[in-house]
């Protein structure tokens, strides 16, 4: 064997061995359990906290509002559609107040006239002209029972 190879081949072998050993230690434990990925990452994603808690959790405290909501047209909505995610509020209701929106703009997100909205799906009004004497929708309508009009 030529002297060049006598030097190069062991160098190459050492290089490959170092690579294989390093590789052994660098691959995460759960890698390849189900496929070419770190199986533990699924558990890590699954362990993230849920921010939207759902109607049932809201009803534990706000049963009167929920009962009213369920009795009317908005019964299909969860509380968090309008009030936002409730996880922090549930932990500390005093500190983390949820929003109580009821402006023309907010209700208009669903109910403003738009040619792309089907009248069969959603009741629409023109938020710019509809009963402009009052500033906000909730000045007349009770959002939990929309046809229960205020004075």
């Amino acid at each position: 064997m030529p002297p060049q190879l006598k030097t190069l081949l062991p160098v190459l072998a050492v290089f490959i061995c170092i690579f294989l050993v390093a590789r052994h230690f660098l691959i995460p434990d759960s890698f390849g359990k189900y496929g070419h990925y770190r199986a533990n990452s699924m558990d890590e994603i699954a362990a993230l906290p849920a921010h939207h808690i759902g109607k049932a959790a809201c009803m534990d405290c706000h049963d009167t509002e929920a009962a009213k909501l369920n009795s009317d047209l908005h019964s299909g909505l969860t509380c968090e559609v309008c009030h936002g995610p409730g996880w922090q509020h549930m932990d500390d209701p005093e500190k983390n107040k949820l929003s109580k929106p009821g402006t023309r703009e907010f209700c208009g997100k669903c109910h403003d006239m738009n040619p792309a909205r089907r009248t069969s799906v959603i009741h629409q009004i023109d938020i710019k002209t509809h009963n402009i004497d009052r500033a906000n929708c909730i000045d007349c309508h009770n959002p939990h029972a929309v046809w229960e009009m205020k004075d």
Partner: peptide
């Protein structure tokens, strides 16, 4: 993630829960 963390807790993904229609 299709709210994988919610699915695993038996909840619906957030966008499905809040869709009013």
């Amino acid at each position: 993630t299709l709210c994988y963390h919610r699915l695993k807790k038996g909840l619906n993904p957030a966008c499905f829960d809040v869709c009013p229609t």
